[in-house]
């Protein structure tokens, strides 16, 4: 177990500035998720911690020891980390047991000890009888379990996970998500988890860092990220809020030719603003403007309504109503967030 510190880390590829001054403190034993859309720099950040990419400016420390920065770079093999890759990266020419034994072999652990610890690691990921199988005989979910066992067997200081679940189908993803949580509870290893799936990040992590265009927009506990997003981007990315650009005028939000009454407790000075409102926070048939219905999508537990507002499409979620596309529905604001426009 170890802490990780990033200080003003920058990375550029050619003319694109992928990571723009990220600072992050991960406490020993903490589980942090880096969440963001593709291209936001989250994987690059993880690879810099792993030592697979060199940083252009800034400092990275693991357990207080500088591993990349002004005084040089420690190569990945000497950082004592474990990593799980999106593509599994299970070596196809080694058996499951040989794959898992490899880090121990390089640590010069004695043969009998290796056998014991490989068996233990196989049990952690519930692959007990599969040690002699070749990777080509395993399913995707089993391969990713091998990768997790291999990353954990050498007692890494930090476990890095690069979108480990995104190559799996929905049911397996759910299952493995639970196993990662259980393993984490049992081993207490510091973990840094990269994902573009908000549900994964919110469900697993102690703290979530939401990234966008190379910077961390907000880093907080999952509940706080969800309940009080600090930027319009975070509100939109986590929770799928509608983003409306308009202006605040005397307790009302004006946008696309209509006016919404702001919900109680939400106040702002008059002027241009961005309003973020989650689909479930729009009150169907509430007090507010009437908007034409474009489409109605039955989701099972609820129904989604697409409504035309100016030149944007508004998404609202609520109970199933007997309305047909073309009809109008009035909308009220139950809750919303305002950001400076």
């Amino acid at each position: 177990m170890a802490s990780v510190q990033l200080e003003a880390v920058h990375k550029t590829y050619g003319s694109t500035h992928v990571v723009r001054g990220i600072s992050l403190e991960v406490a020993s034993g903490e589980f942090i998720a880096l969440l963001g859309p593709s291209g936001c720099g989250k994987t690059t950040t993880l690879r810099m911690i792993a030592g697979l990419e060199a940083l252009d400016a800034g400092t990275i420390r693991i357990d207080g020891q500088e591993v990349d920065g002004a005084s040089g770079r420690v190569p990945p093999e000497r950082r004592k980390l474990g990593m799980v890759f999106q593509s599994y990266a299970v070596w196809p020419h080694k058996s499951v047991a040989q794959n898992i034994a490899y880090p121990l072999l390089l640590q010069r652990v004695a043969g009998s000890e290796i056998a014991r610890r490989v068996k233990e690691a196989l049990d952690w990921v519930r692959l007990g009888p599969f040690g002699d199988r070749m990777p080509s005989q395993l399913s995707g979910g089993q391969l990713q379990r091998v990768a997790i066992a291999r990353a954990l067997v050498g007692n890494p200081r930090v476990l890095l996970l690069d979108e480990p679940l995104s190559n799996l189908d929905a049911a397996l993803r759910e299952e493995l998500r639970g196993e990662i949580a259980a393993l984490r509870a049992r081993l207490g290893t510091t973990m840094i988890f990269v994902t573009h799936d908000q549900h994964e990040a919110l469900a697993l992590a102690d703290r979530v860092a939401v990234m966008n265009q190379g910077v961390i927009e907000q880093i907080d506990a999952p509940q706080r990220i969800y309940q009080s997003p600090q930027t319009a981007f975070v509100a939109g990315f986590v929770g799928g809020a509608n983003r409306l650009e308009g202006r605040v005028a005397q307790g009302r939000f004006v946008c696309g030719g209509v006016e919404f009454t702001l919900p109680p407790g939400l106040t702002a000075a008059d002027g241009p603003a961005i309003l973020a409102v989650r689909p479930e926070a729009l009150e169907l048939g509430g007090v507010g403007p009437s908007l034409p219905l474009l489409a109605r999508l039955f989701l099972g537990s609820a129904t989604e309504y697409r409504l035309q507002l100016g030149d944007t499409v508004l998404r609202a979620v609520g109970p199933t109503l007997d309305v047909k596309p073309g009809a109008s529905i009035s909308l009220g604001l139950k809750a919303a967030h305002l950001y400076p426009g």
């Binding site: 990266a89 490899y102 390089l106 990768a147």
Partner: peptide, 11 residues
């Protein structure tokens, strides 16, 4: 990533 996994394993 096959090569990177070996690097992270200590090679």
């Amino acid at each position: 990533s096959l090569n990177e996994a070996a690097r992270l394993s200590g090679a």
